[in-house]
Design a protein around this nucleic acid. Structure first.
Length: 235
DNA sequence: ACATTAAATTCGA
DNA sequence: TCGAATTTAATGT
């Protein structure tokens, strides 16, 4: 099972590093941070497994320690869509916690991942105890609003090459996805689910973007050297 | 939808 | 632990 390679330059973040490195942890007092570190626990999720399911009560705020997770949903007839991907360093799921209702979408590991789970009680306590934490939540929620505005605009106005470019670029939002790497480990199928286009159409679009030098396509993923250029792409 | 290629897994030594 | 054989996943048209 274990693979002892000379993969020494591959940094494997610990749970504590993920917490201390999170933007929302910066404004906490040492005592608050200590409670957070003792309350948050970690789970390993194999690729393809579900972390949260749509409809279940929200019991945790979720951080990605390593790997890649997607927020997705499936219609009763089985058609699937993906809302967004969250890479290491990203935190997700605050909406259902704040609303107090059921989860509105599934959270699924796209690649084998480790996730941090902050219990609801700890989250609620931080909201009450720390203005800095609450302010961070406002920032993050506001950033989500901006992403959805851009997404709807792009979907209404642009052709699929541009929409796919914008979908990939939106994964690089520095607030929501601070740890997004240039190599995006999403298959063309997954990018299709994210952008609402068929896998075949996604394949064509990626090669068009590659011809413009905006992405490099590889087996199982694409590489984005300049996310801002992708965001500006307008055909 | 189909053919091709890459990767992951299984299996026997 | 190795590599060949087989199966599964992803790509390209």
């Amino acid at each position: 099972m274990s693979r002892n390679h000379a993969a020494s330059h591959e940094a494997v973040p610990t749970l504590a590093e993920t917490i201390r490195g999170a933007a929302w942890a910066r404004g906490l007092t040492p005592a608050q941070l200590a409670r957070v570190e003792s309350d948050v626990h970690e789970r390993s999720i194999p690729a393809g497994d579900c972390v949260f399911r749509r409809g279940e009560p929200a019991r945790h705020w979720l951080g990605v320690v390593s790997g890649l997770v997607k927020i997705s949903s499936a219609s009763p007839s089985g058609k699937a869509i993906t809302f967004t991907g969250v890479a290491a360093g990203g935190w997700i799921g605050e909406s259902a916690l704040l609303r107090g209702g059921p989860r509105k979408a599934d959270v699924v590991a796209v690649r084998a991942s480790r996730v941090a789970l902050m219990p609801r009680d700890t989250f609620d306590w931080l909201v009450d105890a720390s203005i800095a934490f609450s302010r961070y939540l406002l920032l993050q929620l506001n950033e989500r609003v901006g992403v959805y505005f851009d997404s709807i605009e792009s979907n209404r106005l642009e052709d699929s090459d541009v929409r796919i470019a914008h979908c990939i670029a939106s994964l690089f939002n520095p607030v929501l996805n601070p740890g997004m790497r240039k190599d995006v480990p999403l298959s063309q199928q997954e990018i299709g689910l994210l952008s609402g286009t068929s896998r075949q159409r996604t394949n064509q679009a990626l090669h068009a973007l590659a011809r413009c030098g905006l992405v490099r396509v590889a087996y199982g993923g694409v590489t984005v050297s300049d996310p801002d250029a992708l965001r500006r792409f307008d055909g």
